[in-house]
C-alpha cells in the first residue's frame, strides 16, 4: 500500500501530461492551419492567374477562380522559351553546387568546430567578414577575375566557387558541429582514428538534418539565382529558368498569365521535393538517440 500512493501520483501526473499534450496539439493545429492559409495565399494567386485569359488578369475585384480554365497558357508559356533546355541548365548548376557546398563547407566547418588549432576563431571572423561587404562593389573586379580565367559564358563562375565553401553554410555547420559532444571524437582519436575518419564516420552521420537543410537552401538558391546567371552567361542557350521567366516581360507590360503558368511549372516540382525532403528532419538523429 505504501508504494501505491507515489505510483498513483505518478500515473496522475502522466495523465495530466497527456491531457496537456493533447491541448497543445489542438492549439498548435489551429495556429498552424491559420498560418498555412496566410502563407498559401500567394501560391493560390499564382496558380489562379496561370489559368486566366489575358483580359481576366486585370479584372477588379480580382477573379480567384477563373472559368473556363485557360490550359493553353501552359502550352504557350513552355513554347515561348526553350523550357527543357533551361531546365537542364538549371539542374546542372543546382546539382553541382549542392555537391560542392556539401563537400567544402562541411570540411571547413569541421576545421573551425572540431580541430583545436590556434587561429581558428580569427579565421571564423575573417570568413564572416567576407559576407559584410555588399556585392555591388566587388561585382566588377570579381567579374574581371573570371574574365581573365576565361570563365565568362560558362557555368564555371556559378559552380566552382561552391566547391570553395560558402561563409553562410560554413558558419551554420560550425555551430551545429559545436553541439556534438567532444567525447565522441576524443574517444575515436584515442582509438587512432584519423581526422578524416572522425569527420566522415562520426560527425557527418550525426549531422544529417542540417546537411539536408543546406542541400535544400543551396538548391533553392541556385534555382532562383537571377543575378549570377544574368551577368556570367552571355549566350541564350546557356540561360537558366530564372532568366527564362523574365522573357514574359515586355518593355511596357507583363504577360502575367504566361509568367504565372511558367512560374507554377517551376515551383511545383520544388514543392513536391520539399514535401518529401523535410522528412529528413523528422527522421533526424534525435529519434535514434545516439546523441547526448
Amino acid at each position: 500500500m505504501a508504494q501505491t500512493a507515489p505510483e498513483a501520483r505518478r500515473r496522475a501526473r502522466v495523465r495530466s501530461m497527456r491531457r496537456k499534450e493533447i491541448r497543445t496539439q489542438i492549439l498548435g493545429r489551429v495556429v498552424l492551419i491559420a498560418m498555412s492559409v496566410i502563407f498559401l495565399v500567394p501560391i493560390a494567386w499564382m496558380i489562379s492567374t496561370s489559368f486566366k485569359e489575358a483580359h481576366q488578369v486585370m479584372a477588379y475585384p480580382p477573379i480567384w477562380i477563373p472559368w473556363p480554365f485557360a490550359w493553353e497558357n501552359y502550352e504557350t508559356a513552355v513554347k515561348a522559351i526553350p523550357f527543357l533546355l533551361y531546365l537542364r541548365n538549371t539542374l546542372i548548376i543546382c546539382a553541382s553546387t549542392i555537391i560542392g557546398t556539401l563537400i567544402s563547407s562541411t570540411l571547413v566547418g569541421y576545421s573551425l568546430a572540431k580541430i583545436p588549432w590556434r587561429g581558428r576563431n580569427a579565421l571564423l571572423i575573417l570568413i564572416l567578414s567576407t559576407m559584410m561587404l555588399p556585392f555591388p562593389v566587388t561585382m566588377i573586379p570579381l567579374f574581371v577575375t573570371f574574365g581573365k580565367l576565361g570563365w565568362i559564358n560558362t557555368f564555371k563562375p556559378l559552380i566552382i566557387p561552391a566547391f570553395l565553401g560558402s561563409p553562410f553554410y560554413i558558419f551554420l555547420l560550425r555551430q551545429f558541429f559545436m553541439t556534438i559532444p567532444g567525447e565522441l571524437s576524443d574517444a575515436a582519436r584515442i582509438d587512432g582514428a584519423s581526422e578524416l575518419g572522425i569527420f566522415g564516420r562520426i560527425i557527418l552521420p550525426l549531422s544529417r538534418p542540417v546537411l539536408a537543410v543546406i542541400a535544400l537552401f543551396q538548391f533553392l538558391g541556385a534555382w532562383n539565382d537571377f543575378l549570377g546567371p544574368l551577368i556570367y552567361l552571355h549566350s541564350d542557350k546557356k540561360y537558366t529558368l530564372a532568366i527564362g521567366l523574365q522573357m514574359y516581360r515586355t518593355t511596357n507590360y507583363v504577360q502575367w498569365e504566361l509568367l504565372m503558368a511558367a512560374s507554377t511549372l517551376v515551383v511545383l516540382p520544388i514543392l513536391i521535393l520539399f514535401f518529401f525532403a523535410q522528412r529528413t528532419f523528422i527522421e533526424g538523429i534525435a529519434i535514434t538517440g545516439i546523441k547526448g
Binding site: I103, S104, L107, V108, Y110, S111, L112, I115, P116, W117, R118, G119, R120, L123, I127, F163, L164, G165, I170, E195, F199
Partner: peptide, 13 residues
Amino acid sequence: RALVMGLAFAAPW
C-alpha cells in the same frame, strides 16, 4: 598536428 589538420580542412575556403 592540429594546426596542420585545421588548415588542411579549411583549405577549400
